[in-house]
Design a protein around this nucleic acid. Structure first.
Lengths: 196, 196
DNA sequence: TAGGAAGAATTAACACTGTTAATTATATTA
DNA sequence: TAATATAATTAACAGTGTTAATTCTTCCTA
């Protein structure tokens, strides 16, 4: 019956929305089966009729957040000139997004995954997120002979890792100690990678 | 009484040793108050007579592991020629250490801290660990006019962040998917930063 | 429309977690 | 030796994820 599928999808949606709200608000530490179910308007055990376990539910949110992040970046960087300048703007917006929602950073990079096997695509999506967000601009830079294809690959990886490290230290360890210092350092690092 | 202090220190040591064994073996997820106390030969509540809470105990281990890591690197890099080459060797050994003990990586970079205020020095120690491990070689490079002092600071930060990012993705997300690929990528990134 | 079958949602329970208060055991001192 | 101080323990609480058993609801057929 197609009717069942619609209902199923709707109920899953209630749980997912509740989880997303919690993640964006109070963060990952506030997430619990009973907490989510309360917000969704169901009993805690009902969650297990629609998801394998709580990690399953939590990682379903990654897709939505990833789309939201991309949309946020599109708006922030619409006016930036193409090429290296746009890559710089994209990375800045990317950093801004995760600083605004540290709970989503926790989910994307810190939270352990229960069953790694069927989460492979999710992990891949997270890993290549910065690459994907900048890919248009990189091909533009390659076409315009600003960088070689090989060099671009190395730079993609460097940005991916540097930004992950910077966010890890700032969000999870409070280093640098204030936002301005953090932004300055990030700026400095990005410039050092991109300007040559 | 000095006698009391000796006893106090001894008992603390039992708990610390138990925690260290668990962290190096089964990792952070196996850590619990009762688990540690069992291994230490005490009741779980006794732990609270010697530590504020379990996070307190866990983060006491950071000092020991940091010293162990430094010692490991000294042994691994004793034969390396000074300067950039030695920095490369130090970073490789550093990466090797955390890949060998993913539980210690979790502790250093992922685990949340309860009371941030009096852990400031611990956080700082972790943050500047790669800088400190390489500091002798950086001053050597500056003295030999291989790099400027300003450039060295930027490179220190770049290494700190890139390596944190690489380890985060590999240890916590299983990317790249096998060890050889991970090492190749790490090599590539380090060379790109250091060779210019 | 009534009754039975299938499905979904709930409660109760279990095995954990960290932490604290009250109690017992041990050691020290008068 | 007796009284006191200190250390270690047990019991308990509030929380976690998860599962089995039970109730409730919906749907289809007689």
């Amino acid at each position: 019956m197609i009717k069942k599928e619609i209902q199923e999808k709707r109920i899953r949606g209630y749980f997912i929305d509740a989880t997303k709200t919690l993640l964006k608000g109070e963060g990952l530490k506030s997430i619990s089966v009973r907490n989510i179910a309360d917000r969704a308007g169901y009993s805690y055990a009902t969650l297990y009729n629609h998801f394998n376990d709580i990690k399953d539910l939590i990682f379903v949110c990654v897709n939505d957040f990833q789309a939201e992040c991309a949309e946020f970046i599109r708006n922030e960087t619409a006016a930036s000139p193409r090429g290296i300048e746009k890559i710089r703007a994209i990375i800045n917006a990317y950093v801004k997004y995760f600083v605004q929602y540290p709970g989503i950073f926790d989910l994307f990079f810190l939270e352990k995954i229960s069953d790694i096997t069927n989460k492979q695509s999710t992990v891949e999506m997270i890993y290549y997120l910065t690459d994907r967000l900048c890919s248009e601009e990189w091909t533009y830079c390659i076409d315009e002979k600003i960088v070689s294809a090989g060099e671009a690959e190395t730079l993609k990886a460097e940005i991916r890792n540097v930004i992950a490290g910077l966010l890890l230290f700032y969000i999870n360890r409070g280093y640098p100690e204030n936002y301005q210092e953090f932004i300055n350092l990030t700026q400095n690092q990005i410039n050092h990678i991109l300007d040559r």
